[in-house]
């Protein structure tokens, strides 16, 4: 098992075969343009495309169940909050006001619903794009990909290192917590809530100390192998671009251009069907 946060699966579809860099570029360009545009026609187009790619990558529902549910809850919560704080935002945006249900401050207008529909779609579209990147990219390639698009290698390597150490820290946490229970903190269900809480906080001191120790050792080990010597470094897991990678990058550029065309047509970020 490869230690990683997002559950990289060792599948071998064409999506997996793409280099991390091209997927990262796709992810960044497409989500930016989808975030800028408020034209549901364009967003639905991108959504369909990313759902297609998602299907192609053979990601299983169990792998993403938790994350998707979490995103869904936050998206709905966000949409509700937008309505609570500015129920009139849609009308102000589109310049017209078609009242559906009159509820005083909380009056529901067509414009508001349309605005929130666009907003919801935007949230929705980022789910498959980001999950594709996270699940089909070998964690070993993350740092190389980040470095390739211009993030400094020190920064991107620290990401890869934290991926490497997450299971270790989890293990330490578990062990220390058990040791504290043996000392007498009743963290099991037999204990009172307060003593359980207190016991949990006691874990932090040894955990932080042992993590700091680890950080010192690892930074020494890295220096002893010349990390930080040059301005650049190469990556063992780096792969060269092939035709598919170039096509994906072209595709993402095409999508960006398409998005811009839609905006030209709409005369701005918002597509306005009310005029």
């Amino acid at each position: 098992m490869n230690s990683n946060l997002f559950g990289y699966d060792h599948n071998n579809t064409w999506v997996h075969q793409l280099t991390g860099t091209s997927k990262l570029i796709f992810f960044i360009l497409v989500s930016i343009i989808a975030m800028i545009s408020y034209d549901y026609r364009f967003i639905i187009l991108v959504l369909l495309l990313s759902i297609f790619a998602f299907k192609q990558s053979q990601i299983k529902w169990v792998q993403i169940k938790f994350v998707v549910k979490l995103i869904f809850i936050f998206a709905v919560l966000n949409l509700v909050m937008v309505f609570v704080f500015s129920p009139n935002h849609g009308a102000a945006l589109y310049g017209t006001r078609h009242v559906l249900i009159n509820l005083g401050y909380f009056t529901i207008t067509k414009e508001q619903l349309f605005y929130e529909l666009n907003l919801g779609l935007k949230y929705l579209v980022t789910v498959p794009i980001s999950l594709i990147f996270l699940i089909t990219t070998n964690p070993s390639e993350f740092s190389a990909s980040l470095n390739k698009i211009g993030v400094s290698y020190r920064l991107s390597y620290s990401l890869s290192l934290s991926l490497r150490y997450i299971p270790d820290v989890q293990n330490d946490f578990k062990e220390i917590s058990l040791a504290q229970q043996a000392r007498g903190y009743e963290i099991s269900k037999k204990g009172k809530l307060f003593s359980r809480l207190k016991g949990t906080t006691q874990i932090l001191i040894p955990l932080i100390l042992s993590s700091l120790d680890k950080i010192q050792t690892i930074s020494q080990a890295m220096e002893l192998r010349r990390f930080g010597k040059n301005k650049h470094r190469t990556w063992y897991m780096n792969r060269n671009f092939n035709k598919k990678d170039y096509s994906i990058i072209l595709l993402s550029i095409f999508i960006v251009i398409l998005g811009i065309l839609f905006m030209k047509m709409d005369g701005g970020r918002f597509y306005n069907p009310f005029i």
Binding site: N2, N4, S140, S160, R164, K214, A221, G228, K229, Y236
Partner: peptide, 20 residues
Amino acid sequence: DQFVGLTVAEDIAFGMENDC
């Protein structure tokens, strides 16, 4: 504690990566 690579191969190559 001195493993820096996510896999054995990457760890072996770490020094060479830094030497470009």
